[in-house]
Design a protein around this nucleic acid. Structure first.
Lengths: 219, 219
DNA sequence: TGTAAGTCGACTGTTTACAGTCGGTATTAG
DNA sequence: CTAATACCGACTGTAAACAGTCGACTTACA
Protein backbone atom coordinates (compact mmCIF):
# COMPACT_ATOMS: atom_id res chain seq x y z
CA UNK A 1 0.00 0.00 0.00
CA UNK A 2 2.59 2.50 0.98
CA UNK A 3 5.25 3.48 -1.50
CA UNK A 4 3.07 4.36 -4.42
CA UNK A 5 5.25 5.83 -7.09
CA UNK A 6 2.84 8.69 -7.66
CA UNK A 7 -0.30 10.08 -6.06
CA UNK A 8 -2.24 10.25 -9.32
CA UNK A 9 -4.90 12.36 -7.68
CA UNK A 10 -7.04 12.46 -10.73
CA UNK A 11 -3.96 13.25 -12.77
CA UNK A 12 -3.54 11.26 -15.91
CA UNK A 13 0.03 10.50 -16.84
CA UNK A 14 1.17 12.54 -19.77
CA UNK A 15 3.09 11.35 -22.77
CA UNK A 16 6.70 12.29 -23.12
CA UNK A 17 5.73 14.57 -25.95
CA UNK A 18 3.36 16.51 -23.72
CA UNK A 19 5.93 16.71 -20.97
CA UNK A 20 8.50 18.02 -23.44
CA UNK A 21 5.98 20.51 -24.72
CA UNK A 22 5.35 21.86 -21.23
CA UNK A 23 9.03 21.97 -20.44
CA UNK A 24 9.83 23.87 -23.61
CA UNK A 25 6.95 26.29 -23.15
CA UNK A 26 8.12 27.05 -19.65
CA UNK A 27 11.73 27.41 -20.74
CA UNK A 28 10.77 29.86 -23.45
CA UNK A 29 8.24 31.96 -21.60
CA UNK A 30 10.52 32.16 -18.59
CA UNK A 31 13.33 33.45 -20.72
CA UNK A 32 15.58 30.51 -20.03
CA UNK A 33 15.64 30.09 -23.79
CA UNK A 34 16.01 33.70 -24.85
CA UNK A 35 14.33 35.13 -27.97
CA UNK A 36 16.35 34.55 -31.11
CA UNK A 37 18.09 31.56 -29.62
CA UNK A 38 18.70 28.91 -32.21
CA UNK A 39 17.17 25.60 -31.28
CA UNK A 40 19.19 22.55 -32.25
CA UNK A 41 17.21 19.33 -32.30
CA UNK A 42 20.00 17.11 -31.08
CA UNK A 43 20.83 19.47 -28.22
CA UNK A 44 17.26 19.70 -27.03
CA UNK A 45 16.55 16.02 -27.34
CA UNK A 46 19.57 15.28 -25.22
CA UNK A 47 18.67 18.01 -22.75
CA UNK A 48 15.14 16.69 -22.35
CA UNK A 49 16.22 13.08 -22.53
CA UNK A 50 13.86 12.22 -25.32
CA UNK A 51 14.33 11.06 -28.86
CA UNK A 52 14.45 13.42 -31.79
CA UNK A 53 11.22 12.10 -33.21
CA UNK A 54 9.29 12.82 -30.08
CA UNK A 55 10.94 16.20 -29.76
CA UNK A 56 10.05 17.16 -33.31
CA UNK A 57 6.38 16.51 -32.65
CA UNK A 58 6.54 18.91 -29.72
CA UNK A 59 8.40 21.52 -31.76
CA UNK A 60 5.73 21.44 -34.46
CA UNK A 61 3.19 22.40 -31.88
CA UNK A 62 5.32 25.19 -30.47
CA UNK A 63 5.70 26.48 -33.99
CA UNK A 64 1.94 26.46 -34.35
CA UNK A 65 1.61 28.38 -31.09
CA UNK A 66 4.02 31.00 -32.30
CA UNK A 67 6.67 30.41 -29.66
CA UNK A 68 9.29 29.32 -32.14
CA UNK A 69 9.67 30.37 -35.72
CA UNK A 70 11.20 28.60 -38.67
CA UNK A 71 14.06 30.13 -40.59
CA UNK A 72 15.64 28.92 -43.82
CA UNK A 73 15.92 25.16 -44.20
CA UNK A 74 13.74 24.44 -41.22
CA UNK A 75 16.05 26.10 -38.74
CA UNK A 76 14.04 26.82 -35.64
CA UNK A 77 14.65 29.62 -33.20
CA UNK A 78 12.83 31.18 -30.28
CA UNK A 79 10.52 33.83 -31.64
CA UNK A 80 11.36 37.44 -31.10
CA UNK A 81 8.47 39.87 -30.72
CA UNK A 82 8.65 43.51 -31.64
CA UNK A 83 6.18 46.12 -30.42
CA UNK A 84 3.93 45.88 -33.43
CA UNK A 85 3.60 42.14 -32.98
CA UNK A 86 2.68 42.60 -29.35
CA UNK A 87 0.00 45.09 -30.31
CA UNK A 88 -1.25 42.66 -32.96
CA UNK A 89 -1.38 39.79 -30.49
CA UNK A 90 -3.32 41.88 -28.04
CA UNK A 91 -5.73 43.00 -30.75
CA UNK A 92 -6.59 39.37 -31.46
CA UNK A 93 -6.71 38.58 -27.78
CA UNK A 94 -9.12 41.47 -27.28
CA UNK A 95 -11.34 40.22 -30.10
CA UNK A 96 -11.50 36.75 -28.57
CA UNK A 97 -12.13 37.90 -25.03
CA UNK A 98 -14.74 40.42 -26.04
CA UNK A 99 -16.57 37.60 -27.76
CA UNK A 100 -16.27 35.66 -24.52
CA UNK A 101 -17.67 38.53 -22.47
CA UNK A 102 -20.57 39.05 -24.85
CA UNK A 103 -21.33 35.34 -24.88
CA UNK A 104 -21.32 35.12 -21.10
CA UNK A 105 -23.87 37.94 -20.94
CA UNK A 106 -26.32 35.86 -22.89
CA UNK A 107 -25.88 32.72 -20.87
CA UNK A 108 -28.86 31.42 -18.89
CA UNK A 109 -26.95 30.49 -15.75
CA UNK A 110 -25.06 33.71 -15.11
CA UNK A 111 -25.03 32.93 -11.42
CA UNK A 112 -22.51 30.17 -11.85
CA UNK A 113 -20.40 32.31 -14.17
CA UNK A 114 -20.11 35.15 -11.70
CA UNK A 115 -19.27 32.70 -8.98
CA UNK A 116 -16.46 31.07 -10.93
CA UNK A 117 -15.00 34.39 -11.94
CA UNK A 118 -15.03 35.63 -8.37
CA UNK A 119 -13.21 32.51 -7.37
CA UNK A 120 -10.57 33.26 -10.00
CA UNK A 121 -10.25 36.79 -8.66
CA UNK A 122 -9.82 35.42 -5.15
CA UNK A 123 -6.91 33.38 -6.47
CA UNK A 124 -5.43 36.57 -7.91
CA UNK A 125 -5.84 38.32 -4.59
CA UNK A 126 -4.11 35.45 -2.86
CA UNK A 127 -1.26 35.74 -5.34
CA UNK A 128 -0.68 39.46 -4.84
CA UNK A 129 1.86 38.71 -2.18
CA UNK A 130 3.32 35.81 -4.11
CA UNK A 131 5.93 35.61 -6.82
CA UNK A 132 5.71 37.41 -10.12
CA UNK A 133 5.13 34.11 -11.88
CA UNK A 134 2.21 33.34 -9.60
CA UNK A 135 0.61 36.68 -10.31
CA UNK A 136 0.94 36.25 -14.06
CA UNK A 137 -0.36 32.72 -13.77
CA UNK A 138 -3.46 33.71 -11.80
CA UNK A 139 -4.16 36.60 -14.16
CA UNK A 140 -4.04 34.34 -17.20
CA UNK A 141 -6.13 31.79 -15.37
CA UNK A 142 -8.84 34.41 -14.91
CA UNK A 143 -8.92 35.18 -18.62
CA UNK A 144 -8.76 31.51 -19.56
CA UNK A 145 -11.72 30.91 -17.27
CA UNK A 146 -13.56 33.70 -19.02
CA UNK A 147 -13.21 31.79 -22.27
CA UNK A 148 -13.87 28.39 -20.77
CA UNK A 149 -17.12 29.44 -19.13
CA UNK A 150 -18.63 30.31 -22.50
CA UNK A 151 -18.73 26.62 -23.31
CA UNK A 152 -17.35 27.46 -26.73
CA UNK A 153 -14.52 24.96 -27.15
CA UNK A 154 -13.29 26.60 -30.31
CA UNK A 155 -13.00 29.93 -28.54
CA UNK A 156 -11.13 28.36 -25.66
CA UNK A 157 -8.82 26.54 -28.05
CA UNK A 158 -8.08 29.69 -30.04
CA UNK A 159 -7.32 31.58 -26.86
CA UNK A 160 -5.04 28.85 -25.60
CA UNK A 161 -3.20 28.85 -28.92
CA UNK A 162 -2.50 32.49 -28.26
CA UNK A 163 -1.55 32.03 -24.62
CA UNK A 164 2.10 31.34 -25.31
CA UNK A 165 2.39 34.50 -27.37
CA UNK A 166 0.70 36.46 -24.61
CA UNK A 167 3.19 35.14 -22.09
CA UNK A 168 6.04 36.05 -24.40
CA UNK A 169 4.64 39.54 -24.77
CA UNK A 170 4.59 40.01 -21.03
CA UNK A 171 8.08 38.62 -20.71
CA UNK A 172 9.42 40.67 -23.57
CA UNK A 173 8.05 43.89 -22.19
CA UNK A 174 9.72 43.25 -18.90
CA UNK A 175 7.96 41.58 -16.06
CA UNK A 176 7.55 44.75 -13.99
CA UNK A 177 5.60 46.53 -16.66
CA UNK A 178 3.73 43.42 -17.62
CA UNK A 179 2.07 42.82 -14.31
CA UNK A 180 1.31 46.37 -13.33
CA UNK A 181 -2.02 46.16 -15.07
CA UNK A 182 -3.12 43.04 -13.32
CA UNK A 183 -4.98 44.77 -10.57
CA UNK A 184 -7.83 42.97 -8.89
CA UNK A 185 -10.03 46.04 -9.26
CA UNK A 186 -9.91 46.02 -13.03
CA UNK A 187 -10.97 42.41 -13.08
CA UNK A 188 -13.82 43.08 -10.71
CA UNK A 189 -15.03 45.66 -13.21
CA UNK A 190 -15.13 43.01 -15.89
CA UNK A 191 -17.15 40.62 -13.77
CA UNK A 192 -19.48 43.40 -12.74
CA UNK A 193 -20.06 44.32 -16.36
CA UNK A 194 -20.84 40.73 -17.25
CA UNK A 195 -23.10 40.49 -14.23
CA UNK A 196 -25.30 43.26 -15.56
CA UNK A 197 -25.98 41.14 -18.62
CA UNK A 198 -25.33 44.15 -20.83
CA UNK A 199 -23.34 42.63 -23.69
CA UNK A 200 -22.11 45.89 -25.15
CA UNK A 201 -21.01 47.15 -21.76
CA UNK A 202 -19.14 43.91 -21.12
CA UNK A 203 -17.51 44.12 -24.50
CA UNK A 204 -16.50 47.71 -23.91
CA UNK A 205 -15.04 46.90 -20.52
CA UNK A 206 -12.92 44.07 -21.88
CA UNK A 207 -11.69 46.12 -24.81
CA UNK A 208 -10.62 48.91 -22.48
CA UNK A 209 -8.86 46.41 -20.24
CA UNK A 210 -7.00 44.95 -23.20
CA UNK A 211 -6.13 48.36 -24.59
CA UNK A 212 -4.70 49.39 -21.27
CA UNK A 213 -2.75 46.15 -20.95
CA UNK A 214 -1.31 46.43 -24.45
CA UNK A 215 -0.48 50.10 -24.05
CA UNK A 216 1.28 49.22 -20.84
CA UNK A 217 3.41 46.58 -22.52
CA UNK A 218 4.63 48.70 -25.39
CA UNK A 219 4.68 52.08 -23.72
CA UNK B 1 16.75 19.00 -70.02
CA UNK B 2 13.46 17.46 -70.90
CA UNK B 3 11.81 15.18 -68.45
CA UNK B 4 11.80 17.36 -65.41
CA UNK B 5 10.07 15.50 -62.66
CA UNK B 6 8.01 18.56 -61.80
CA UNK B 7 7.37 22.00 -63.30
CA UNK B 8 8.23 23.98 -60.19
CA UNK B 9 6.87 27.15 -61.73
CA UNK B 10 8.03 29.43 -59.01
CA UNK B 11 6.83 26.90 -56.50
CA UNK B 12 9.25 26.11 -53.78
CA UNK B 13 9.36 22.42 -53.12
CA UNK B 14 7.66 21.64 -49.90
CA UNK B 15 8.78 19.19 -47.32
CA UNK B 16 7.11 15.82 -47.30
CA UNK B 17 5.46 16.77 -44.07
CA UNK B 18 3.83 19.79 -45.66
CA UNK B 19 2.73 17.77 -48.65
CA UNK B 20 1.23 15.17 -46.38
CA UNK B 21 -0.49 17.89 -44.40
CA UNK B 22 -2.09 19.33 -47.52
CA UNK B 23 -3.09 15.93 -48.77
CA UNK B 24 -4.72 15.03 -45.47
CA UNK B 25 -6.46 18.39 -45.18
CA UNK B 26 -7.90 17.97 -48.64
CA UNK B 27 -8.92 14.39 -48.00
CA UNK B 28 -10.74 15.38 -44.84
CA UNK B 29 -12.43 18.56 -46.00
CA UNK B 30 -13.50 16.88 -49.21
CA UNK B 31 -15.13 14.09 -47.29
CA UNK B 32 -12.87 11.42 -48.71
CA UNK B 33 -12.03 10.68 -45.11
CA UNK B 34 -15.46 10.89 -43.56
CA UNK B 35 -16.10 12.31 -40.07
CA UNK B 36 -15.62 9.72 -37.36
CA UNK B 37 -13.28 7.68 -39.51
CA UNK B 38 -10.54 6.15 -37.45
CA UNK B 39 -7.07 7.11 -38.66
CA UNK B 40 -4.46 4.37 -38.42
CA UNK B 41 -0.89 5.58 -38.65
CA UNK B 42 0.46 2.61 -40.52
CA UNK B 43 -2.35 2.77 -43.06
CA UNK B 44 -1.93 6.47 -43.72
CA UNK B 45 1.84 6.35 -43.90
CA UNK B 46 1.59 3.62 -46.50
CA UNK B 47 -1.15 5.45 -48.37
CA UNK B 48 0.87 8.67 -48.49
CA UNK B 49 4.14 6.86 -48.99
CA UNK B 50 5.84 8.52 -46.07
CA UNK B 51 7.28 7.21 -42.85
CA UNK B 52 5.33 7.08 -39.63
CA UNK B 53 7.51 9.73 -38.03
CA UNK B 54 6.86 12.26 -40.74
CA UNK B 55 3.19 11.40 -40.74
CA UNK B 56 2.88 11.89 -37.01
CA UNK B 57 4.25 15.41 -37.29
CA UNK B 58 1.56 16.22 -39.81
CA UNK B 59 -1.13 14.64 -37.66
CA UNK B 60 -0.13 16.79 -34.68
CA UNK B 61 -0.82 19.85 -36.74
CA UNK B 62 -4.15 18.57 -37.98
CA UNK B 63 -5.05 17.90 -34.38
CA UNK B 64 -4.15 21.49 -33.53
CA UNK B 65 -6.32 22.71 -36.39
CA UNK B 66 -9.25 20.73 -35.14
CA UNK B 67 -9.60 18.47 -38.15
CA UNK B 68 -8.83 15.32 -36.22
CA UNK B 69 -9.51 14.60 -32.60
CA UNK B 70 -7.79 12.27 -30.21
CA UNK B 71 -9.67 9.50 -28.51
CA UNK B 72 -8.43 7.21 -25.75
CA UNK B 73 -4.80 6.17 -26.02
CA UNK B 74 -4.00 8.63 -28.75
CA UNK B 75 -6.40 7.07 -31.20
CA UNK B 76 -7.08 9.70 -33.83
CA UNK B 77 -10.22 10.05 -35.85
CA UNK B 78 -11.67 12.59 -38.23
CA UNK B 79 -13.53 15.15 -36.19
CA UNK B 80 -17.28 15.20 -36.25
CA UNK B 81 -19.01 18.55 -35.88
CA UNK B 82 -22.47 19.01 -34.43
CA UNK B 83 -24.56 22.10 -34.91
CA UNK B 84 -23.45 23.77 -31.71
CA UNK B 85 -19.83 23.38 -32.69
CA UNK B 86 -20.51 24.93 -36.08
CA UNK B 87 -22.19 27.88 -34.42
CA UNK B 88 -19.23 28.18 -32.04
CA UNK B 89 -16.73 28.08 -34.87
CA UNK B 90 -18.61 30.78 -36.73
CA UNK B 91 -18.80 32.91 -33.61
CA UNK B 92 -15.02 32.87 -33.35
CA UNK B 93 -14.67 33.40 -37.08
CA UNK B 94 -16.97 36.40 -36.82
CA UNK B 95 -14.92 37.86 -33.99
CA UNK B 96 -11.72 37.52 -35.99
CA UNK B 97 -13.11 38.91 -39.21
CA UNK B 98 -14.83 41.80 -37.52
CA UNK B 99 -11.48 42.71 -36.04
CA UNK B 100 -10.07 42.52 -39.55
CA UNK B 101 -12.77 44.78 -40.95
CA UNK B 102 -12.32 47.32 -38.19
CA UNK B 103 -8.56 47.29 -38.63
CA UNK B 104 -8.80 47.82 -42.37
CA UNK B 105 -10.96 50.87 -41.79
CA UNK B 106 -8.16 52.49 -39.87
CA UNK B 107 -5.47 51.74 -42.40
CA UNK B 108 -3.78 54.66 -44.16
CA UNK B 109 -3.67 53.07 -47.61
CA UNK B 110 -7.29 52.02 -47.97
CA UNK B 111 -7.02 52.41 -51.74
CA UNK B 112 -4.87 49.32 -52.03
CA UNK B 113 -7.12 47.38 -49.70
CA UNK B 114 -10.24 48.07 -51.70
CA UNK B 115 -8.40 47.17 -54.86
CA UNK B 116 -7.23 43.81 -53.54
CA UNK B 117 -10.65 42.95 -52.22
CA UNK B 118 -12.27 43.79 -55.53
CA UNK B 119 -9.80 41.53 -57.22
CA UNK B 120 -10.80 38.74 -54.84
CA UNK B 121 -14.46 39.37 -55.66
CA UNK B 122 -13.66 39.20 -59.35
CA UNK B 123 -12.20 35.77 -58.72
CA UNK B 124 -15.44 34.79 -57.01
CA UNK B 125 -17.45 36.06 -59.95
CA UNK B 126 -15.29 34.05 -62.29
CA UNK B 127 -15.90 30.98 -60.15
CA UNK B 128 -19.70 31.29 -60.14
CA UNK B 129 -19.87 29.08 -63.17
CA UNK B 130 -17.18 26.76 -61.90
CA UNK B 131 -17.26 23.77 -59.63
CA UNK B 132 -18.56 23.87 -56.08
CA UNK B 133 -15.03 23.46 -54.79
CA UNK B 134 -13.87 26.46 -56.78
CA UNK B 135 -16.65 28.59 -55.37
CA UNK B 136 -15.84 27.62 -51.82
CA UNK B 137 -12.18 28.18 -52.48
CA UNK B 138 -12.66 31.68 -53.88
CA UNK B 139 -14.99 32.60 -51.04
CA UNK B 140 -12.48 31.53 -48.43
CA UNK B 141 -9.76 33.30 -50.35
CA UNK B 142 -11.72 36.54 -50.07
CA UNK B 143 -12.00 36.22 -46.33
CA UNK B 144 -8.38 35.14 -45.96
CA UNK B 145 -7.40 38.23 -47.94
CA UNK B 146 -9.45 40.33 -45.58
CA UNK B 147 -7.31 39.08 -42.72
CA UNK B 148 -4.05 39.23 -44.62
CA UNK B 149 -4.51 42.85 -45.67
CA UNK B 150 -4.60 43.98 -42.06
CA UNK B 151 -0.92 43.19 -41.82
CA UNK B 152 -1.64 41.51 -38.50
CA UNK B 153 0.18 38.20 -38.82
CA UNK B 154 -1.29 36.87 -35.62
CA UNK B 155 -4.79 37.55 -36.88
CA UNK B 156 -4.05 35.84 -40.17
CA UNK B 157 -2.54 32.88 -38.39
CA UNK B 158 -5.49 32.51 -36.04
CA UNK B 159 -7.87 32.67 -38.97
CA UNK B 160 -5.92 30.07 -40.89
CA UNK B 161 -5.93 27.80 -37.87
CA UNK B 162 -9.68 27.98 -38.04
CA UNK B 163 -9.91 27.52 -41.79
CA UNK B 164 -9.98 23.75 -41.68
CA UNK B 165 -12.85 23.81 -39.22
CA UNK B 166 -14.71 26.28 -41.41
CA UNK B 167 -14.31 23.99 -44.40
CA UNK B 168 -15.56 21.07 -42.34
CA UNK B 169 -18.57 23.11 -41.28
CA UNK B 170 -19.47 23.82 -44.86
CA UNK B 171 -18.97 20.22 -45.83
CA UNK B 172 -20.90 18.90 -42.88
CA UNK B 173 -23.86 21.12 -43.57
CA UNK B 174 -24.00 19.88 -47.11
CA UNK B 175 -22.36 21.69 -49.91
CA UNK B 176 -25.58 23.07 -51.43
CA UNK B 177 -26.54 24.90 -48.27
CA UNK B 178 -22.98 25.91 -47.54
CA UNK B 179 -22.43 27.89 -50.69
CA UNK B 180 -25.81 29.50 -51.01
CA UNK B 181 -24.63 32.42 -48.93
CA UNK B 182 -21.57 33.09 -50.99
CA UNK B 183 -23.14 35.67 -53.22
CA UNK B 184 -20.96 38.30 -54.77
CA UNK B 185 -23.38 41.01 -53.67
CA UNK B 186 -22.91 40.32 -50.02
CA UNK B 187 -19.19 40.58 -50.38
CA UNK B 188 -19.48 43.81 -52.25
CA UNK B 189 -21.38 45.15 -49.27
CA UNK B 190 -18.46 44.28 -47.04
CA UNK B 191 -15.95 46.03 -49.23
CA UNK B 192 -18.24 49.04 -49.55
CA UNK B 193 -18.55 49.24 -45.78
CA UNK B 194 -14.80 49.11 -45.35
CA UNK B 195 -14.41 51.68 -48.07
CA UNK B 196 -16.43 54.20 -46.08
CA UNK B 197 -13.86 53.95 -43.32
CA UNK B 198 -16.63 53.59 -40.77
CA UNK B 199 -15.29 50.93 -38.44
CA UNK B 200 -18.53 50.19 -36.65
CA UNK B 201 -20.41 49.91 -39.92
CA UNK B 202 -17.78 47.54 -41.28
CA UNK B 203 -17.96 45.47 -38.12
CA UNK B 204 -21.72 45.36 -38.29
CA UNK B 205 -21.68 44.28 -41.92
CA UNK B 206 -19.27 41.44 -41.27
CA UNK B 207 -21.18 40.22 -38.23
CA UNK B 208 -24.39 40.14 -40.23
CA UNK B 209 -22.66 38.26 -43.01
CA UNK B 210 -21.32 35.71 -40.55
CA UNK B 211 -24.65 35.38 -38.78
CA UNK B 212 -26.36 34.70 -42.05
CA UNK B 213 -23.72 32.21 -43.10
CA UNK B 214 -23.89 30.34 -39.80
CA UNK B 215 -27.69 30.36 -39.74
CA UNK B 216 -27.62 28.97 -43.23
CA UNK B 217 -25.36 26.11 -42.24
CA UNK B 218 -27.33 24.94 -39.25
CA UNK B 219 -30.81 25.87 -40.40
C1' DT C 1 -23.87 -22.93 -19.30
C1' DG C 2 -21.58 -19.06 -17.72
C1' DT C 3 -17.76 -16.73 -16.52
C1' DA C 4 -12.91 -15.90 -15.49
C1' DA C 5 -8.38 -16.23 -17.16
C1' DG C 6 -5.20 -16.49 -20.85
C1' DT C 7 -3.84 -15.45 -25.69
C1' DC C 8 -3.44 -12.91 -29.86
C1' DG C 9 -3.45 -9.06 -32.75
C1' DA C 10 -3.77 -4.21 -33.68
C1' DC C 11 -2.01 0.31 -32.55
C1' DT C 12 0.33 3.79 -30.49
C1' DG C 13 4.56 5.70 -28.01
C1' DT C 14 9.26 5.93 -28.36
C1' DT C 15 13.94 4.90 -29.50
C1' DT C 16 17.98 4.04 -32.42
C1' DA C 17 20.61 4.10 -36.44
C1' DC C 18 21.36 5.66 -40.95
C1' DA C 19 21.13 7.98 -45.67
C1' DG C 20 20.72 12.31 -48.05
C1' DT C 21 21.15 17.31 -48.58
C1' DC C 22 22.47 21.95 -48.06
C1' DG C 23 25.40 25.66 -46.53
C1' DG C 24 29.08 27.51 -44.21
C1' DT C 25 33.98 27.07 -43.08
C1' DA C 26 38.47 25.73 -43.18
C1' DT C 27 42.09 24.02 -45.96
C1' DT C 28 44.88 23.71 -49.74
C1' DA C 29 46.54 24.24 -54.51
C1' DG C 30 47.75 27.53 -57.98
C1' DC D 1 45.49 36.31 -52.77
C1' DT D 2 41.93 33.54 -54.87
C1' DA D 3 39.41 29.65 -55.95
C1' DA D 4 38.43 24.77 -55.82
C1' DT D 5 37.86 21.17 -52.45
C1' DA D 6 36.94 18.73 -48.40
C1' DC D 7 34.68 18.66 -44.07
C1' DC D 8 31.29 19.54 -40.68
C1' DG D 9 26.95 20.90 -38.53
C1' DA D 10 22.19 20.51 -38.78
C1' DC D 11 17.83 19.41 -40.70
C1' DT D 12 14.75 16.01 -43.37
C1' DG D 13 13.27 11.70 -43.98
C1' DT D 14 13.46 6.51 -43.52
C1' DA D 15 13.41 1.81 -41.66
C1' DA D 16 13.22 -1.36 -38.07
C1' DA D 17 12.36 -2.60 -33.62
C1' DC D 18 10.33 -3.03 -28.83
C1' DA D 19 7.27 -2.11 -25.00
C1' DG D 20 2.65 -1.19 -23.28
C1' DT D 21 -2.21 -1.39 -23.70
C1' DC D 22 -6.69 -2.65 -24.92
C1' DG D 23 -10.21 -5.24 -27.23
C1' DA D 24 -11.65 -9.51 -29.04
C1' DC D 25 -11.48 -14.19 -29.07
C1' DT D 26 -10.66 -18.62 -26.95
C1' DT D 27 -10.38 -21.80 -23.53
C1' DA D 28 -10.76 -24.00 -19.24
C1' DC D 29 -13.04 -24.59 -15.10
C1' DA D 30 -16.92 -24.54 -11.74
Amino acid sequence: MAGLTAPLLGLQKKSLREQALSALRTAITSGELEPGRHLVETELSEMLQISRGTLREALRQLEQEGLVSAGPRGRLSVRHLDEKEIRDIYAVRAALESLAARTLCELPDRQHVTESLHKAIDAMTAATSGSLEDRIESDLEFHRTLCRLTGNETLLHSWESLEGSIRMSIMFAGLEKGVSNMSVDRHNDIVAAIDTGDASLARKTILEHMDAAAANLVA
